[in-house]
Write a protein that binds this DNA or RNA. Sequence first.
DNA 1: CGCCGTGATACCTGCCAGGTATCACAGCGC
DNA 2: GCGCTGTGATACCTGGCAGGTATCACGGCG
Lengths: 285, 285
Amino acid sequence: MDDLETRELRYFVAVAEELHFGRAAQRLGMAQPPLSRAIQQLERRLGVGLLERDRRGVALTAAGEVLLREGRATLDAAAAAARRARRAGGADGPGERLVLAAKAAGSHELLQKLLDAHAAEPGAAEVEVLLCGLCEQEAMLRDGRADVALMYTPFNSLVGFDSEELATEGQVAILPAAHPLAARTTLSLADISDVPGLPLARWPRRDGGYPPGPGPEIRDQTQLAQLVALGRTVAVFPEYGRSWLWAEHAAVPLTDAPPVVTHIAWPPHSRSRALAGLVRTATRL
Amino acid sequence: MDDLETRELRYFVAVAEELHFGRAAQRLGMAQPPLSRAIQQLERRLGVGLLERDRRGVALTAAGEVLLREGRATLDAAAAAARRARRAGGADGPGERLVLAAKAAGSHELLQKLLDAHAAEPGAAEVEVLLCGLCEQEAMLRDGRADVALMYTPFNSLVGFDSEELATEGQVAILPAAHPLAARTTLSLADISDVPGLPLARWPRRDGGYPPGPGPEIRDQTQLAQLVALGRTVAVFPEYGRSWLWAEHAAVPLTDAPPVVTHIAWPPHSRSRALAGLVRTATRL
DNA sequence: CGCCGTGATACCTGCCAGGTATCACAGCGC
DNA sequence: GCGCTGTGATACCTGGCAGGTATCACGGCG
């Protein structure tokens, strides 16, 4: 059967995400009629209805859901192909360059040790560090902006990547130093989940949404630090968070929070010497 | 930057595989000049040389190698998107259908048990079994011909898939019943690797090539069975091979061959109820 | 009953993918 | 040396299709 063109997938993904032909067309920088036509053609070629148009917006069919998921993966793969090929050709003079994606709020100590150890290796590839927000490493690996990433389970998902475990650590409660609970030597999740006047901070889920609850929605570490210092919230955070604590903060170990495991992860089928070297260095730390 | 179209990737992959514009064009069902032009355009758009033309054939540059690997993955993803969407829409009447890929020469017992157990589950999805050759399950999962597969490490690679371990077993030497070694109760790899007049059969590697050596190149299990029965070769094979032995064959356990682990594997990010049910059934066997 | 806002249709046009014919060049047999 | 063959590149043309504009059909809503 004839293949899907990435153009068609781009169009479909835009419509499926917006659930609105007009807005999708605008986002794609084109007029609405050709977009409608393109989607109709796609449906005819696949022999399957993708969208349920009912005069008041648009809904995905089961087949549409599948194509949205697989289409996104395909577009990521295409973007990755372009980026990686471009990079492989651009800098063939000084040897390969690696792009390492890491959470900006991640463990500075580990990152520093990894970069130092790698730089000390003879013939090590140059490593560019790409710091990202809370959950973007996965997307960066998938679409080729990064070659390798530091990921933290259970926050990041390792599904679809190769990885090696680097370290395991507990989590702490980060709370205002002045709060009575800050004096405790250990806490449990139950202790901090229903404190009057000190709601539990809410981290974004993988889909970008937030779990329900009274606490503030956290977008980055700075914001969290400020909120805790102001006495407005308490948060669960990995041990390495101790390194950025303010005087107004206190960290108390949590006995029953799930442990956080740091992994180094990379796209499957990557077989470059530079990447292998960095991974080897990392596992030896 | 503007995306790559799958058309361009198809063209490039064809040329990169053939290393010959004329043959590639023929394979693509088009004339050579537009193909040359398309590749030139692609190189200009990426800003990177992909092929080294030197008047006597064509060679891949470093960037070309990268684009070949990533391009194949992208094309597989696109094919998978089309197939899975088509299937998701086609059979929405009787519930989801699953396509299970399994090696034709794999363990019949395990497959039978899995299918029986799954069929006994209430509300189980219909499972279509797709039997394939020696190493095709990976490609089938990647390009959407199958939804889930039984894979055998170390023969299959699990890189890029999610999987669960199902069983572990040893390997046996399969040799002519009349041969003196057939009388032994156990053997080591050293015992069978240099037997005069009985060379070791060579299995295909993952890239489709064969390791060097004097023994015959094996393409399927029937061929192997015939060769062993004729006294022409000895082969290393998982325990489950005992089920298809002929009277002319003997199987002797190998003490130092790597164990074979059976996994059930599926593409990452598959989150269908039907698949989850089959995997759950499999892990409970 | 007009008036939006939705997606679909009709129709036109310019671009580009692809075809044919040909070139430029390197090896090679004589 | 001189064709001959086989390589990829170039020149030029054409048809189809992607995309634009104008408009329709229709459902909610004041």
